[in-house]
């Protein structure tokens, strides 16, 4: 792909938009269509596009595998951690209402945001990992 300048240019232009859209889907998830799963995949798609155009090595430099490994685990931990936090604060597991001691609705906002974030991180990391694994075959 090194010699094709048009795709490279367009990729550079598109990439911020894709990532931005991913973040939009991510954080809009608790009001409208969207959420962590979709956002994670869109986010990962951005990196896949980058890796296709600029090569796997460059992609690995930007998003190193160790970071992915942390991401995969971290997302699950955020998700479960929020649940446990609810439990520790006196509610049931995944009871967001208790996260804010003054306003249960605010607590629910916070809870769903964090949980979706956790899902997003894990999904994105897993998707990129899978792509790396496939693209890295035969090396």
């Amino acid at each position: 792909m090194q010699q094709y300048s048009v795709p490279r240019l367009i990729t550079k232009l598109l990439l911020p938009l894709i990532l931005l859209f991913a973040l939009y889907v991510q954080f809009h998830g608790d009001f409208g269509p969207g959420g962590g799963f979709q956002a994670g995949v869109i986010f990962a798609a951005g990196f896949v596009l980058y890796a296709l155009v600029y090569g796997l090595d460059n992609a690995r430099r930007i998003m190193p595998p160790w970071l992915l490994r942390v991401g995969v685990s971290l997302g699950v931990l955020i998700y479960a951690g929020v649940g446990v936090a609810g439990m520790l604060l006196g509610g049931a597991f995944l009871d967001y209402g208790v996260l804010d001691s003054h306003d249960p609705v605010h607590g629910q906002h916070l809870g769903i945001l964090l949980v979706e974030l956790g899902v997003g991180i894990t999904v994105a990391s897993v998707m990129i990992s899978i792509f790396y694994a496939f693209a890295g075959r035969g090396r």
Partner: peptide, 21 residues
């Protein structure tokens, strides 16, 4: 009273921790 959910959550949290170690 949380035992039923802890049964699932404990290994669920431990799994990513293992991966991080």
């Amino acid at each position: 009273e949380h035992l039923p959910v802890l049964q699932v959550v404990v290994p669920l949290i431990a799994a990513p921790l293992c991966a991080l170690l």
